[in-house]
Design a protein around this nucleic acid. Sequence first.
DNA 1: ACGTTTGCGCTTTAGC
DNA 2: GCTAAAGCGCAAACGT
Lengths: 80, 80, 80, 80
Amino acid sequence: MAEGTVAADQLRLFIERIERLEEEKKGIADDVKDVYAEAKSNGYDPKIMRMIVRLRRMEAHTRQEQDAVLETYRNALGLA
Amino acid sequence: MAEGTVAADQLRLFIERIERLEEEKKGIADDVKDVYAEAKSNGYDPKIMRMIVRLRRMEAHTRQEQDAVLETYRNALGLA
Amino acid sequence: MAEGTVAADQLRLFIERIERLEEEKKGIADDVKDVYAEAKSNGYDPKIMRMIVRLRRMEAHTRQEQDAVLETYRNALGLA
Amino acid sequence: MAEGTVAADQLRLFIERIERLEEEKKGIADDVKDVYAEAKSNGYDPKIMRMIVRLRRMEAHTRQEQDAVLETYRNALGLA
DNA sequence: ACGTTTGCGCTTTAGC
DNA sequence: GCTAAAGCGCAAACGT
């Protein structure tokens, strides 16, 4: 077995791992769509729901930024 | 317990399910990044790998589209 | 005339240029719709036509991507 | 020359007209991008500009809806 | 005519 | 920081 083949196999395995993960990711995205659809069938407006999710994520992100800054300060001051 | 609270709880549960799924999705996206990083540390070029992944996906889509055209033709011609 | 007015005028001009271009774009999109309608009145199936247009575009993209991968390989291997 | 050829030619012409129009459309879309880039190089924030364009379009759309309702009423009442 | 579903454009995010 | 690609939201198109 040539070395080139070993390398090719290794590369192929990496590619396949990536493709497998991306399939999983797509499956979860589909699950999200399903939840929105289920909520809609229960009388909730998906569009508003998406806005809520986005707002909560933004707030979470802002909070994380604050935490990161705080962490930086603590490290700088040796208060870890 | 007011009915409004029940509805609010139901909505909150939907939102939380969505947020949980999106966290999972992000986790998988991070896994993908890790695989690219691991491949890179084994001497493979991530840029080329990404191109290959994209190319394979495009080819798959093209094949699916070709099949769909044929199927539609058959239906249009009553050859189902 | 205040400087703020100059800036406001400049911004307004940019916005108007964009809106003008988007109107043109919409006009062309309508032209496309007209062609599909005309073809349909001549007995062609718009659905199949759309699939063909999409397929040809996808194949063009696939070809471009193949070329890009090859080019990147050549560069990576110093075969430019 | 067989009739099938005539039909095929006609279909091909429709397809080519559509593809030509879509190229034009893409060209205009690129022009829009250029304007945003030019505005940005003049110190304006493209993201905010896009919001403005969207708002103005929504208002225009709302106005159009109102006009359409009015038109419907006029027709219904024979006040055209 | 309406509801559903797919395709297109935009926004955002990730890589360089 | 900028460019390009992937994901998302919306709107038009198809089927009922």
